[in-house]
Amino acid sequence: MKGLIIKDLINMSKSIKIVLALAVFYGVMAFSTENPSGFASIILLVLAMSMLSTYTYDEMANWDIYALTLPISRDNIIQAKYIFMIIISLLGFILNGLTLILINWLTKASGVFDGLVYVAYGTAIVIWFYSIIIPVITKVGITKARLYIVLFYTIPFLSGTFIFKQIKKLQPEPPEGLVKFLEILIRNVDTIIPILTIVLLGISYYISVMIYRKKQF
């Protein structure tokens, strides 16, 4: 299974120049504006794209059909993707964390710890994104999944915005119950996010394994 992760890392490393160029460019931007959030978003986005590109490489090479003849199980192939995804997410966290620390150190700003917490939240959200999309890719392949990615993330966002506006017109003040619920969520965000991440990851992995075990090639 280690070989599968190495394969993805080698493939990803081939596009590392682009990642590094973007990191330097947005790093300079972050430093000049003293605002690392833009940099963090770009790094997370680029890494997310790198993760998806490993699926593209696999599909282009028709890799899975060959991989299944190697001394590895179907479950191993899925496990390798999830481990790789966690490595990528941690890499994003480390890169963003280091940039934040560097900017704070250079600008002598305070609040490094708070910043790192936000970076961790961002990383968790990236893991949620992967957790939703990996079972979809496993089921339909990356080419079709790209379309679903767009649908999954734009339709709920656009329709949510529209519905929210309509509700706001009808009821300018949010209901008290909802406000209280959100307050509880915010107060316990440090507990909720890690638990939600682990639960989502677990469900996502289980679904992907089930899909892949039945997949025909």
Binding site: G3, N11, A61, I72
Partner: peptide, 18 residues
């Protein structure tokens, strides 16, 4: 069925772990 980006050395590295 091998990835276009890989070289012979890469293949050896990957397969030795598989």
């Amino acid at each position: 069925n091998l990835h276009e980006n890989l070289t012979v050395d890469n293949v050896n590295f990957i397969m030795s772990d598989i």
